[in-house]
Computed example of a mutant assay.
Amino acid sequence: MLTHQPITRCFMVLCFGAAALLVAAEWASPQLRQPPPVGSPKALWRYEGFGIMSRVSQQAKETRLIVSLAERQLQLYVKDQLTASYEIAVGQEDWQTPTGSFQIRQKQEYPAWQHPITGEVVPPGPDNPLGSRWLGFWTDGKYAIGFHGTNQEEFIGQAVSHGCIRLRDRDIRDLYEQVDLGTVVVVNP
């Protein structure tokens, strides 16, 4: 039988106990569950680190978003039926929207926004360029890209964002209710 010295046992108990307390505190505190400002280096939500994304809802399995950057259109499919189409704004030159297949990894109402160049944080409200909803689908660990509303709807249809896909605020609210974490996003050139 393998036995450990008393000092080793104490150290192991302290380590495991501290880890358990940190996990419990994170899940118990609503403040810790709030995502950091979109665009910040820590824009990945904590749930990704705990593997919660492994359970994809039925809604996410039946829904997919198809983006055409050239046509500035977003199409929502549910059970392979086109259910909605939205006019969008896309990434500007040198900040292009990434193409490929992704999944919705973040959902947030009334997000704060951090400017990717200046670092300035804009809280939720009428001056926030993200509007009232955020659906994140891409990150490189430093920047996050997703669908969001806008406080400048006159730019819908143009290439003006820092890589994100902008929708009219009424459209992002509608879309937000119809997608779930894990929803497939296909971005075509």
Rank of each mutant, 00 (worst) to 15 (best):
R170S: 10
D80P: 03
T97L: 07
D140R: 02
S40H: 08
D171G: 11
R105N: 00
R55E: 09
P129A: 05
Q106T: 04
V184G: 05
L2C: 09
L181G: 06
I117T: 10
A159G: 06
M1D: 12
T83V: 15
Q178Y: 02
G182N: 06
G91K: 01
A159N: 03
L69A: 05
R168W: 01
G17H: 06
A19P: 01
G131N: 09
T63P: 11
L69Y: 07
Q73S: 08
Y110V: 01
P123Q: 12
H162V: 04
D140A: 02
A60M: 03
W138N: 06
K107G: 09
R166A: 07
F50S: 04
A144G: 15
G131F: 09
S68V: 10
N151Y: 06
R55L: 07
Q5K: 15
H148F: 05
Q5L: 14
S85N: 15
G49E: 04
Y86H: 14
F102P: 10
V179I: 00
A19C: 12
E48F: 07
Y176T: 02
V56D: 05
P36I: 03
V121T: 10
A20C: 14
G51F: 12
W138I: 04
Q58I: 04
P124A: 13
I66R: 14
P126T: 07
S29T: 13
L21I: 14
Q59T: 14
R46Y: 00
G125H: 05
P30N: 13
D174C: 09
G141N: 02
S161K: 01
P36C: 11
F16W: 11
A18S: 15
M53P: 10
